[in-house]
Amino acid sequence: MTDPVHHSFLEDAQGIAYGACMAAFAITILTHLGLVTGQTAGLAVLVSYATGWGFGPVFFAINLPFYWLGFRRMGARFVAKTLAAVTLMSALSMLMPRWVSFATLDPIVGALLFGAISGSALLALFRHGASLGGIGIVALYLQDRTGFRAGWTQLLFDATLFAVALTLRDVPTVAISALGALIVNLTIAVNHRRDRYVAA
């Protein structure tokens, strides 16, 4: 019988696999259109655009310094699941363009799809005790140490990222990208409720 409070190993595995796969697919949409996004993935996308390096290796490397903070703030179980999610997403993001291509993809529709798919991916990861690492961990750590709200840290980081993006992309592209980021955040805000979903 399934435990109503805790996920089984297989439930966690499928949830993390789903989240990582959908996140990789969303990044494929994003980078195909030359758009940007926020958080750690957004930083990796900008580094990728600026250097020509692949998103997957950059995303994996950027997350490495954050695992110690994640261990201190969330524990070994969270870090192990997050490492698995980040590693799988990084690998799949390198393979996905070989499997998926787009003959026609309107940038606004693509941004909306990116936002909805990314939001569902993150929800799956959150509900199985994982994340895609990075800035969210730092934000929670700073909130614990200083009282500065995690949401404000993430907002300031994203604002900086989008400002930098204007040096690499034109204003319409960055504006469409902001729409995608808004959909990601709305999807999580509306659907991620600990008081309604308690399994971990």
Rank of each mutant, 00 (worst) to 15 (best):
F78M: 05
L10I: 08
A165Y: 04
A23W: 03
F78V: 05
Y18C: 06
V5A: 12
F9S: 04
D106M: 07
F78I: 05
F148I: 15
A111F: 10
L166N: 04
G54F: 06
G19V: 08
T28F: 03
P107S: 08
T104F: 13
P65Y: 03
L166Y: 05
L83P: 00
T167A: 12
S118Y: 11
A121K: 05
R194P: 09
A24F: 12
R98Q: 14
R196W: 13
G115F: 10
A61S: 06
Y18V: 15
A76K: 11
L64T: 09
S177M: 07
I108A: 09
L30I: 03
Q154G: 13
F148S: 05
A111P: 08
L64H: 04
W53N: 04
G147E: 05
V109A: 14
V58F: 02
L43G: 11
V86P: 08
G110D: 08
P172S: 07
V190D: 10
A20P: 04
T160H: 00
S101N: 10
L92H: 05
T87N: 03
L112Q: 08
I62T: 02
G70K: 06
T173D: 07
G38H: 05
A150W: 13
Q143K: 12
T104M: 11
H128P: 09
M74W: 11
S93Y: 11
H6W: 06
G180D: 01
W152K: 10
L156H: 01
H128F: 08
W152C: 01
G19L: 04
L112T: 09
T167S: 12
F78P: 03
L186P: 00
P97H: 09
A121N: 06
D158G: 01
T167E: 06
F162Y: 14
L122S: 05
A23N: 09
V79A: 06
